[in-house]
């Protein structure tokens, strides 16, 4: 629920320039769910959970803009410094940046959203049902500390951008001197016709962790991001996985969504992540969801199935599961 306020052009009055007031837009998202999980490796685990809560504030004034977005999320890795056990909710910054747009250029600095994943999430629209495969498989982070520069193509035809970030994502500190460089492009070839067809691509190079394990990701896809119908498919190649510099993998994913009668949402998504190209070693995930919304509340009933295959079957423990979730 993001409220964007356009800046009115200042009017001249007797030679006195009246500057507009800055605009502020609060935002709040809370995801709660009843999650009935039926693992193939163990008993069913039905549970009420609040996987994530986000609170934030956007500000804009003339060409300047800023956002502070905090999130509460379950700490599954003991991320708190003192006195908090792993299964606790930690409060952390998801975004905290300031930016400026001058003509067709926009620069941001701080804890910024990276350039590709937000666009993929915008196409899919139902992030709360499950993260994009790039984030889920930790190939790219949705936000990171750094700076970005985007050049917008005329006529709403998209953008080309570059981001330089720490590379450890927004949940971890910087651990090495190397920086990640992401070059991202989004092109709307038929923007002049009002058709929401988008072609996206990214090339990312960087390092991971103290030993500076080199990583590279490249790929892209195409998506139709209309308000009623959305569909997309993408393919990404990744090198530097699971702590091994030479390990390469592939992520393929596709989705379709349809909104009927204004508020009835239907969606399906599939992801396959090949953790290695040297052997059969992958994770398949299928997702089906039906939802409805009214005012600022959305509800979903979703079924998800995760199946590890090949080497991943004994290795990726606890992921072989049917999952049903109602998300709001």
């Amino acid at each position: 629920m993001l409220l964007l306020t356009q800046v009115e052009a200042p009017s001249a009055d007797a030679g006195v320039e009246v500057l507009p007031l800055p605009s502020f837009s609060p935002r709040a998202d809370a995801f709660g769910e009843f999650n009935a999980r039926f693992p193939s490796e163990g008993p069913a685990l039905p549970a009420f959970t609040v996987p994530r809560v986000q609170l934030g504030l956007d500000a804009a004034w003339l060409g300047a803009s800023a956002r502070v977005l905090a999130e509460g999320a379950y700490a599954t890795n003991g991320g708190a410094l003192v006195g908090v056990q792993g299964d606790s909710v930690v409060l952390r910054l998801r975004e905290a940046w300031a930016g400026y747009r001058w003509r067709f250029l926009e620069a941001r600095m701080g804890l910024i959203p990276t350039l590709l994943i937000p666009e993929l999430e915008r196409g899919f629209r139902f992030r709360e049902l499950g993260a994009d495969g790039l984030e889920r498989q930790q190939l790219l982070a949705p936000a990171d500390l750094g700076a970005s520069l985007r050049g917008f193509l005329p006529g709403g035809h998209g953008f080309v951008g570059v981001a330089v970030t720490n590379g450890e994502g927004y949940t971890s500190r910087e651990l090495n001197a190397g920086k990640n460089v992401d070059v991202t492009a989004l092109v709307r070839p038929f923007a002049a016709l009002g058709l929401p067809l988008e072609v996206l691509g990214v090339a990312s190079f960087g390092t991971q962790g103290v030993p500076q394990i080199p990583t590279a990701r490249a790929g892209g896809g195409v998506q139709w991001s209309g308000p009623v119908l959305g569909a997309g498919a993408s393919l990404f190649w990744a090198r530097g996985l699971l702590g091994e510099a030479s390990r390469t993998g592939l992520l393929a994913q596709g989705f379709v969504r349809l909104t009927l009668f204004e508020h009835l949402h239907l969606t399906a998504r599939t992801q396959y992540f090949a953790r290695s190209l040297a052997q059969e070693d992958g994770l398949f995930e299928g997702l089906l969801g039906v939802g409805g919304g009214h005012a600022f509340v959305d509800g979903f009933v979703a079924w998800a199935r995760t199946v590890p295959v090949g080497v991943a079957r004994p290795s990726v423990v606890g992921f072989d599961a049917h999952e049903g979730a109602e998300t709001r």
């Binding site: 003991g78 991320g79 708190a80 410094l81 003192v82 971890s172 500190r173 651990l175 991971q208 962790g209 103290v210 030993p211 500076q212 394990i213 702590g243 091994e244 510099a245 030479s246 390990r247 040297a278 052997q279």
Partner: peptide, 27 residues
């Protein structure tokens, strides 16, 4: 055959140990 090369292995050893104890290494 699945083992990474030697220099990669050292990076993997460091990465696994640091990631597990990163919070303690800082505090």
């Amino acid at each position: 055959a699945c083992a990474p090369p030697e220099d990669e292995r050292q990076a993997l050893v460091v990465q696994a140990l640091v990631r597990a104890d990163e919070v303690l290494l800082r505090t």
